[in-house]
Amino acid sequence: MLETKGLCKNFGALEVAREVNFRLERGARHALIGPNGAGKTTFINLLTGVLPPSRGSVLLEGEDVTLLAQARRVKRGIARTFQINQLFRGLTVQENVCIAVSERLGVGGSMLRAAGRRADVLDEAARLIDMLKLGQDADRRIIELPYGRQRLVEIALALGLQPRVLLLDEPAAGIPSAESHILLDAIATLPKDIAVLIIEHDMDLVFRFAERITVLVSGAIFAEGTPAEIAANREVRSVYLGSALDG
């Protein structure tokens, strides 16, 4: 589905991605883990086209998209969330979701019809808002919401793009653990053939969610396998998992 070949990225002398050969299969539930500064977010930025790679290529369903701008990749079905909320803070939850949905439906540039009269956009936004249990906050502005609720809007925006590949950058960070099931439930309702890649530090969530795990250390793939294989891997335990699993 989504694949990288020999992907490299340097910031000056600093190598943040080293010869990354990575495959995300159709319908995958894949987790990317690694210590802080391992280059996980950079990797997502390379996949989505926020950063141009120094070398190597990104392929979507066998097609080279390395040179495509971010917006074009989104149109082809790559959506992401941000590690730190990137929302339209002065707008309401509903408006936030509507903007994403309008872009997907290709009506974002329509100048004549009032946004509030687009039943298709409004219905779909309402469905997403319902799914993420944001119903009672739909008319509130983002800045009036607690951070955890904002996090859910972040997910709603990505889902509104109906992606084929969904990249979630620490989606659960900042969500109270009592609410993190909303997130997992939302992902569970996605069509099965969507590929989901999740960056996450909460190992509990990773092992509940992922069918495959890649460990990234210092910009290079350190290990890859099923959760059982990763949990059993001594080296991984020593560099990263450590106490998270022992305890």
């Binding site: 903007i99 309008s102 872009e103 974002g108 329509s110 946004a115 687009r118």
Partner: peptide, 8 residues
């Protein structure tokens, strides 16, 4: 319009 919304 949707255009205006995207401007905001």
């Amino acid at each position: 319009s949707s255009f205006g919304q995207s401007l905001t």
